[in-house]
C-alpha cells in the first residue's frame, strides 16, 4: 500500500478504506462480527446508494511520470449507507463485489463511531492490514529466486 502523507485528519479513514477494499468476503464478515461483539447488534442503516456495479477509467502517465492518459477501464462496485446520526459509510471496490461493498460501507460507518471508533479501527483494521501485507509479501517472495546475480568472466588466455 502507498504511504499516506496527507491530509492528516482523513488519514485513518483513508487507510482503513484501502485495507477493507482488499479484504476477502470472509475477512469482512469476521470484521463485522468483531464489531458487533463490541457494539452489540447493529441496525442496518438506510441505503443512500444501493450497491451498484460500474467502471472507473484507469489513468496512466506517459513515460510513467509525464502527462496523464486513459489506459482503459476497470469494473468497480460502490455502495453508500447513511446512519441515523447522518454518518456516511462508503465503499468503492475494484471488481464486481456487491455483497462486499455493503459490508465495507457498513464497517466504514461503524468505525467512524465517536466513542468506540478509534479503538475498533485498531482492532479490526490492523489484523486485516497484516494479513494483506503477508499475502503481498508471499506473492513478491516468489520472484526473489528469479533475481539475477551477474558475474563477469575475466578474459584470460594465458598471456600475461
Amino acid at each position: 500500500m502507498k504511504q499516506i502523507t496527507e491530509p492528516p485528519e482523513h488519514a485513518p479513514r483513508r487507510r482503513w478504506l484501502g485495507v477493507l477494499a482488499r479484504a476477502s468476503r470472509a475477512e469482512l464478515e469476521a470484521a463485522k462480527g468483531l464489531i458487533e461483539q463490541r457494539l452489540g447488534p447493529v441496525d442496518m442503516p438506510r441505503f443512500l446508494r444501493r450497491p451498484e456495479i460500474g467502471m472507473a477509467m484507469v489513468r496512466g502517465r506517459a513515460g510513467g511520470d509525464g502527462a496523464a492518459f486513459n489506459l482503459g477501464e476497470m469494473t468497480v462496485t460502490r455502495c453508500t449507507l447513511q446512519f441515523s446520526d447522518g454518518r456516511l459509510g462508503c465503499a468503492y471496490l475494484a471488481g464486481r463485489r456487491l455483497e462486499e461493498s455493503v459490508l465495507v460501507a457498513l464497517i466504514d460507518g461503524l468505525l467512524q463511531d465517536r466513542r468506540h471508533g478509534a479503538a475498533l479501527a485498531d482492532d479490526v483494521i490492523e489484523p486485516l492490514a497484516e494479513a494483506l501485507a503477508a499475502r503481498r509479501n508471499q506473492r513478491l517472495a516468489k520472484s526473489q529466486p528469479t533475481k539475477v546475480e551477474f558475474f563477469t568472466m575475466v578474459r584470460g588466455d594465458g598471456r600475461p
Binding site: 489506459l71 469494473t75 468497480v76
Partner: peptide
C-alpha cells in the same frame, strides 16, 4: 456500465 470516476494516474514507480 456507468462510469463512476476517473482514477488518479497510477504510479508505476
Amino acid at each position: 456500465l456507468p462510469r463512476f470516476a476517473d482514477s488518479l494516474p497510477i504510479d508505476t514507480a
